[in-house]
Design a binder for these strands. Structure first.
Lengths: 234, 234, 234, 234
DNA sequence: GATGAATGAGCTTTCATTCAT
DNA sequence: GATGAATGAAAGCTCATTCAT
């Protein structure tokens, strides 16, 4: 199915390894990704059609398949464009304090995560939403492709962060940790994937310039409290 | 030209008013709803086709349109089948303690909610998941139909519960309440809409008999703690 | 295809042979015919669905098939309900003057036809329109069923009238007669099948009580003039 | 949600501005139109399915939607392909004699019309039939779309011709003119929309090469006579 | 690299009809 | 006679994808 002799769809679109500056968002493939991010975030993956994407990006319909091989390829590409910086930023954060501090506390870890999320958000206005929608999707049984993609590409990097998190919650049993982790991932995923809608509900009149920092600042104490709540006796 | 009164798609499937026993799951329309619940929960609404539903329900493809008018009609019907009992159970819970107690505390409210959710779950194995997926969908801008349906049918009943909840969090500013509400709704929605996947991750070998009670018991302390966490100063 | 042991769908619905009085329009089958006439006249045969008919007639969807066997059976029945009285009235008209007068002139023939059409129109408000639409349909190559039905049931009776008509136009060659006949049939068919629309265009504000007599009175001189126009030399 | 600008369904099929020669009937979109014309003329619009059209045209089923957006779009396109040349030819005819002659008489007007109709007919063998069927349809109450399309696109151009026609019939009252116009339109519409069937009836053995010129030559005197017939006193 | 045209598979929906009662 | 439920076939349309240029 994949053995076609076609442009290799390398993950390395022009998206330079370090996304420092060079915001070359003007070329076809970037325009597609950007349009896709917005539409995926607003509507979902399945409900977004290639025509909507290419129309919004103002490129030819066939361009998506040319550049990304398939719709799924585009989704993975969009995912990579957020997940890679996210993991980079998390590792960067960990290593920064890892030198002298023996083990980061829960607030520090949350801070690192928040900084990483903010950095993803600053890529484009929908990077974060679409990333969160993707993580949500990944829990559906029918989306094993997606699960596999994430696990293969980012499994180990994510595991490192979770490892640190686990250290900070040694009071919890393994199962309790598992569930709390997902409760709180639920908060993050739901809030951030719907953040445009929520901000619009919160401030109907404001110009819609999302301040993720503010949202995260509200969320962190809640998450910490949730993580550290006394468990129900079983 | 389009206002023909087809078979009125009565909400009064055989679904007897009190869903005590009488699990008459054998008639066409119930079988459709049940199949739809399972597939919607596992795959999502858009990604589930009518053919999948009617195949699983072992009924004719046209039966869905006969009984529910359209796919959207089926979705609304599925929604109603969970939301109505949920609201009923919540109101029942509220009224039960409302007699002598002046105002319920946060734990009592969570208990009432948990009982209501459990009752929904006991309808069928996927009622709760699909309900949560529906609430999630309702936050997407492109799903105004769904928003409107929920608001029109259940808006006021939900508002009552939120009103009680707000009374218990008078320490929070209006905006802080808004965000915390959604953080914690995120927990509930994410956890319960993916509960089958999560249980399978948690206990890969166990027979998949979902114990929502157990999940909710783990979740309530976390939610209460999150709701009552000290706010970040702004 | 037709050998099913079912209610015989006799052409003799209650529609008594002589439609003198007894306007028993209250029973199911009459209500269906009446609804069908209206919808067929306004929309056409194919574009009218059984649901529209049964809804308008306020009867069960299956009633049409029960009473008429199929949609085509209903169409034939509707046709018969107009064509039979039409032929009756024409023959009646012819016989009335046939005793002492040697051969009727063109104006007399047109008068007979007009009287017959008016009588059909007085059955119900759409009998005439639907009859004309039927005749129009009958010229389509794909409607051989309909052609055959009309020819078998009414061919000979119509031929008699045409025979008289031909006698009055002996100046015309056979071909010229053929074409003029159809030119003028076109006038009649188009005008009467669209008469509701035309009356509404003519008198937008008037209550829509169709006066076919008036229309026919305008049309007869035109048709006579057309029939008797000097031919182009060939 | 539905306003996506699909391939713009340009009216500029290859159909070269001057349809002199270059019968480039080989490209997809022309083949579709041609197949559609034939089937629409023979069977009607509703009774012709997209599958019949694409099968006859030997193109993919989706090609119709690609090129014309929808079945209705195809119908409009087919309509335009006849109506535009018709109006052009009429205007051309009018302007040609308009220079020195003060006002054209009825025979001249009919001649202009006939020439225009012949020119439409020479586009393809079914252009004229389908055009006439379309005009017939446009009188049905349920076809407001079609009415609007014709009125918007061609209303004014048609009105000019009618204006000239009215001048030649100043003896008639406004209402009398209205009715005679439609009587005679009925002749034209009925005859030409069924011309293949009528020619086949007239000359069962002849090769079916339609001679519209001959038909029109027979029809014009009839129409003129009808238009000028002495009115019934009211 | 890019694009207009085309396509196979599959979508939801509609239809006339049938069946069990 | 009459009816609610059900159904097979087919309708118009959409989708991601491919191909020739």
């Amino acid at each position: 199915m994949d053995e076609l002799p076609r442009p290799k769809w390398r993950k390395t679109n022009n998206m330079s390894a370090d996304n420092t500056f060079m915001n070359s968002t003007s070329d076809t493939s970037s325009r597609i990704v950007q349009a896709a991010e917005k539409l995926f975030a607003e509507q979902g993956f399945k409900e977004t059609t290639m025509r909507q994407i290419t129309t919004l990006a103002d490129v030819n319909l066939a361009a998506v398949n040319y550049h990304f091989g398939s719709k799924k390829g585009l989704i993975h590409s969009v995912a990579a464009q957020s997940l890679t910086p996210l993991c980079n930023a998390i590792e960067e954060g960990l290593s920064k304090l890892g030198v002298n501090s023996p083990a980061p506390g829960l607030p520090e870890l949350m801070h690192i995560l928040a900084v990483a999320l903010v950095r993803v958000h600053h890529r484009t206005d929908y990077s974060l939403s679409v990333l969160m929608r993707l993580l949500d999707q990944a829990y559906r049984p029918a989306q094993q492709d997606l699960q596999q993609f994430i696990r293969e590409q980012y499994g180990k990097r994510i595991a490192v962060f979770l490892h640190y998190l686990r250290k900070n919650t040694s009071a919890l049993s393994e199962r309790e940790f598992f569930w709390r982790l997902h409760f709180l991932m639920g908060s993050v995923i739901f809030t951030l994937s719907n953040m445009h809608a929520l901000v619009a509900l919160d401030q109907p009149d404001a110009v819609e310039e999302i301040e993720v920092e503010a949202i995260l600042q509200r969320m962190i104490p809640v998450i910490c409290a949730g993580m550290q709540a006394p468990g129900q006796e079983h």
